[in-house]
Amino acid sequence: MQAALNIIGDELKSVEQQFVKDLESDVPLIRKVGEYVLSSGGKRVRPALLLLAARLCGYTGDKAVPLASVIEFIHTATLLHDDVVDSATLRRGLASANTLWGNEASVLVGDFLFSKSFSLMVAVGSLDILRVLSAATTIIAEGEVMQLLCTGELDLTEEQYINVVRAKTAILMSAACEAGAILGEVTPERRRALADFGMDLGIAFQLMDDTLDYTATEEEFGKSIGHDLEEGKITLPLIHTLRQCKSDERDTIAAVIEKDEMSLEEFREVSALVKQYGGIDYAVASAQCYIKRCSDHLELFAPGVVKDALLELAEYVVTRSK
């Protein structure tokens, strides 16, 4: 992330200030919950992508920072809703908002952030950007429902899972990059290239998240390890394991997934199978393939520090431990 921070560090500070401004409300709880989640240590990858994409496309105006704030507002709204759906207790190493204020407050503040995002998009004055970001929020909602339908589905294919990842996680990174390209008024080909860059980076990001659920400590990961497994989420390391393992081992995994609560011993048993059959390595290798594609997408753009920063940001995705 350091190369990106060297270029857009001041703008990211302005994004943080924009958050505070955009959270203004006559309802104190909205600001309280919103500031808690927005200040809880996120890496701001999505705002950084928009700011860097805009720079790469030669944009020098004043709309990138407000739009970067919008992107993080949308992301934060999805986190609030996700934690309610997943009954999560940790987020970025801290108590999740629903743990502190309850599910009702989390859902309603998430709704506020979504609604506020659209009013902020309109203020930017670009119908193209409004179209891209509104389409992205619709796809995110579809992705959440798709994931719900796939819960506990042992026969979930890799293709089906990647489709969920595209919709639930990657589309917002793609939209962030495409919005930056729209600000820079580049050719349709370059706009598509940046959208594709964001999409493949987003898929790689989620695949690495999948591995961290099995390999990281809670302190590193910032949320409960094994939570995806306990919730019955079939992610790529487990998909690969289920394709490779013996029938009795598959039954063991199925029995754990069907339980409402999972013991530490059960998690370790499934985690050992995932590692034994190379599920972690397979997911990491898949993520690296998507990052390679990210590099290919940027070949349309001339070499320079901004392009290098985007590529370094992509590499960060597959080397992070949280």
Rank of each mutant, 00 (worst) to 15 (best):
Y161F: 15
E218L: 00
Q2Y: 10
Y277G: 05
V124Y: 09
R293Q: 13
V65S: 05
E11L: 00
K292Q: 07
T169P: 13
V15I: 12
R190Y: 01
F301R: 00
S106V: 04
W101A: 11
S39Y: 04
T319R: 14
A136T: 10
L229Y: 06
D82R: 01
G232I: 12
A54E: 08
P303T: 04
A314S: 14
L183N: 07
Q147G: 15
K13C: 09
E266I: 11
G42N: 08
L52T: 08
K259I: 12
L154C: 03
S321W: 02
L149T: 00
K322P: 05
V132D: 06
Q2S: 12
G41K: 06
A176S: 11
L127W: 11
V109T: 06
K116S: 03
T217F: 05
G232A: 03
Q244H: 12
E144F: 14
T99V: 13
L130A: 10
I203C: 08
V45D: 00
L51N: 09
G304W: 00
A195Q: 06
A48S: 15
Y214E: 02
L156F: 07
C289H: 13
V270R: 04
G9P: 07
A272L: 10
I30M: 08
R192Y: 08
D83T: 03
E315W: 11
E220M: 10
M121I: 03
L238N: 05
S263T: 15
Y282H: 14
Q160W: 01
M199H: 04
G198F: 01
C177L: 06
N6L: 05
I182N: 05
Y214L: 11
C57P: 00
E142Y: 08
S14V: 07
E189Y: 00
K246S: 15
V85K: 01
T187W: 00
D111W: 12
N98G: 08
T319V: 13
D22M: 15
V20H: 14
V164E: 01
L201S: 05
D83I: 02
V84I: 13
L52Y: 02
V305C: 01
G110C: 14
L212G: 04
L113S: 08
E153Y: 10
K32I: 07
L242H: 09
S25Q: 06
T252W: 09
H297K: 12
T99L: 14
Q18S: 15
E315S: 14
I291K: 02
Y36P: 08
L94M: 15
E219R: 00
A135K: 06
K233M: 13
D22Q: 15
Q2A: 14
L264H: 09
S25D: 06
R31D: 04
A123G: 06
C289I: 11
Y59F: 13
S14Y: 05
K168C: 10
Q276D: 13
Q160P: 01
T252G: 08
M208W: 06
A3Y: 12
I253C: 09
E312V: 10
F114V: 15
A309P: 10
Q288C: 04
G102I: 11
D200E: 12
L154K: 01
R92K: 05
R268N: 03
G143Y: 01
E265Y: 05
E315N: 15
G184N: 04
E249H: 04
I280N: 03
F267Y: 15
V33D: 12
L207K: 03
L133Q: 05
L172M: 04
F19G: 11
A135F: 07
L148D: 10
A97S: 14
E258F: 04
